[in-house]
């Protein structure tokens, strides 16, 4: 990973590119529409800076492609877009295949271990079962939060969460600075 400041600059650049698409296509927008556009372009720009290393970004871009924002995606990603245009689906396919396969394996291993577990059943106490259930519930929530998380196993989920948190922090930082800057400028103009 590069230094955060260079990441921030790259993010800003791509984000502005995305915003330009909106300003050049639609002129009249309501506040909600504008907010959605700003958020989407920021998300995609953030994803585009990490697209080579992380799968959450690919999932995010794939989702944006599906939501009929492909113009924006293409514009933001530029030369990477045509490479990615196939890859999201491939990636999804691969992940789902993996999931099915791992499910099969899981079922098999469950059937083999069930016999053993009957013997050890009394040893396994209630507490650990409850703890396991709690963790399962939280993992599910986390999977729903991280883009593309439904297709990940636990190890890669944690890895992607790490990456995602770092990127989100950068995104928030840049956006806050920009908002502050524009607000102050506006404030000054209001007095004038």
């Amino acid at each position: 990973m590069r230094s955060p400041s260079s990441l921030k600059q790259e993010f800003l650049k791509t984000w502005l590119k995305g915003l330009q698409v909106y300003t050049s296509t639609k002129k009249k927008m309501s506040i909600l529409e504008r907010k959605k556009a700003i958020k989407l372009s920021a998300d995609i720009a953030m994803a585009s800076t990490r697209i080579s290393t992380s799968s959450w970004s690919r999932a995010l871009v794939a989702k944006a492609c599906n939501a009929s924002n492909s113009i924006l995606v293409e514009h933001v990603l530029g030369h990477e877009a045509h490479v990615l245009k196939k890859s999201p689906k491939n990636w999804m396919m691969a992940m789902s295949n993996k999931r099915i396969r791992s499910k099969k394996i899981l079922r098999k291993s469950c059937t083999t271990t069930r016999k053993m577990r009957k013997k050890v059943a009394h040893v396994v106490d209630e507490a650990s079962l409850i703890a396991k259930r709690l963790i399962m519930k939280r993992t599910k929530v986390l999977k729903s939060l991280v883009p593309g998380g439904e297709y990940m196993d636990e190890i890669s989920l944690i890895k992607e969460t790490l990456d995602y948190i770092l990127s989100l922090r950068i995104q928030v930082d840049v956006m806050r600075h920009l908002a502050n800057a524009t607000e102050k400028m506006d404030h000054g103009k209001g007095y004038n």
Partner: peptide, 8 residues
């Protein structure tokens, strides 16, 4: 923040 930017 995106809301803020949109309203600013």
């Amino acid at each position: 923040l995106s809301m803020r930017l949109a309203t600013v």
